[in-house]
């Protein structure tokens, strides 16, 4: 079969991208290989581990379970877009740092994207709600407690 190519136009972290992609290219691979945004990690490629989570129009989704061509006309946010251009961390990133919410760091981009969207909707979450929101992101290092602590701290700091 000849390559089935499609022109797409989307924004990633606010920047407009136009590209031509093969239909079977996963969004995760488009971000990593075509756009060189390798901060989005790929773990299981079947939607279980959550490492590849990005925001699609503000909502966390698995980028390994979407085709790049499906992102046409949409806004994608990745880990590279969280810190300010000057390098200042978001409150969640800072709290993850303060609480040692990561060890090997492989799952961290997916967790940051998931919990960034979660904190947008939940200003005063309970610890149970945080754990529920985290349930779709596997971390094999931390045991999760420090991640939960970080999200609770970030929520508290964001409330001011």
């Amino acid at each position: 079969m000849d390559n089935d190519l499609h022109d797409i136009a989307l924004t990633v972290n606010g920047a407009a991208y136009n590209g031509r992609v093969e239909s079977r290219l996963l969004l995760s691979d488009f971000l990593r290989h075509d756009l060189k945004l390798a901060g989005t990690h790929v773990g299981c490629e079947h939607g279980v581990c959550g490492a590849c989570t990005v925001l699609l129009d503000g909502e966390p989704v698995r980028s390994c379970l979407m085709l790049a061509v499906q992102a046409n006309g949409h806004a994608i946010s990745t880990i590279e877009g969280l810190a300010s251009p000057a390098g200042d961390y978001t409150p969640l990133q800072q709290a993850m740092h303060d609480h040692h919410g990561l060890q090997c760091g492989y799952c961290t981009p997916g967790i940051l994207m998931t919990m960034t969207a979660f904190l947008d909707e939940h200003a005063s979450p309970s610890e149970d709600e945080v754990r529920e929101a985290l349930s779709g992101n596997l971390c094999r290092c931390t045991g999760y407690q420090n991640i939960v602590d970080a999200v609770m701290t970030a929520a508290s700091r964001m409330r001011g």
Partner: peptide
């Protein structure tokens, strides 16, 4: 609904 997969999956 909350028993079905995870929030990221339910978004799609």
């Amino acid at each position: 609904l909350p028993e079905i997969a995870h929030p990221q999956i339910r978004n799609r």
